[in-house]
Amino acid sequence: MFELTAAVRAFAEERDWQQFHTPKNLAMALAGEVGELLAELQWLTPEQSEAVMRDPELGPRVRAEIGDVTIYLVRLADVLGIDLVEAARDKLADSARRYTVEAARGNAAKIEAPPTS
């Protein structure tokens, strides 16, 4: 992850884009790219969406949009000083506590987080 973060940072610095890479702007750009990814999958059936990477036209477009999403997410985490892998591991551990195997297996219902004091 460090190499990708450094490459994305260098890309922005070479173009003097740091001035535009505020957390707000990056989050908005990330949302836009997620929207473009959604647009590629929007009208597919569940079966078509599962097979999308085998489609010679759609597969590369989905891959490119996921690349864009990843780049903006990595850049946002970098600007905010967040270790993306550590944040994901922490969130996964929290989700494991909230969504125990017994309570969540085969069930997509949201489980409310316990109140914080």
Rank of each mutant, 00 (worst) to 15 (best):
M1I: 14
F2Y: 13
E3F: 13
T5S: 10
A7P: 02
A7L: 09
V8F: 08
V8I: 15
R9I: 12
A10K: 12
F11Q: 02
F11H: 03
F11K: 02
A12T: 05
E13P: 01
E13S: 04
E14R: 13
R15V: 08
R15G: 06
W17S: 02
W17H: 01
W17L: 07
Q18R: 10
Q19G: 04
Q19A: 05
F20G: 00
H21N: 04
T22N: 03
T22I: 02
T22F: 03
P23M: 06
P23S: 07
P23I: 03
K24L: 04
N25L: 00
N25R: 01
L26P: 00
L26M: 04
A27N: 01
A27I: 01
A29C: 02
A29N: 01
A29H: 00
A29M: 03
L30W: 06
A31T: 13
A31L: 14
A31K: 09
G32R: 00
G32P: 01
G32M: 00
G32T: 01
G32H: 01
E33P: 03
E33M: 03
V34F: 08
V34K: 00
V34T: 08
E36M: 04
L37N: 02
L37M: 09
A39D: 14
A39M: 14
E40A: 12
E40Y: 14
Q42T: 10
Q42V: 08
W43V: 10
L44P: 01
L44R: 11
T45Q: 13
T45H: 05
P46R: 05
P46E: 06
E47C: 12
E47L: 12
E47H: 15
E47A: 14
Q48R: 13
S49G: 08
S49T: 15
A51F: 10
A51D: 14
V52W: 05
M53T: 11
M53F: 13
R54Q: 11
D55L: 14
D55I: 13
L58E: 05
L58I: 15
G59E: 08
P60E: 06
P60Y: 05
R61D: 06
R61A: 06
V62I: 11
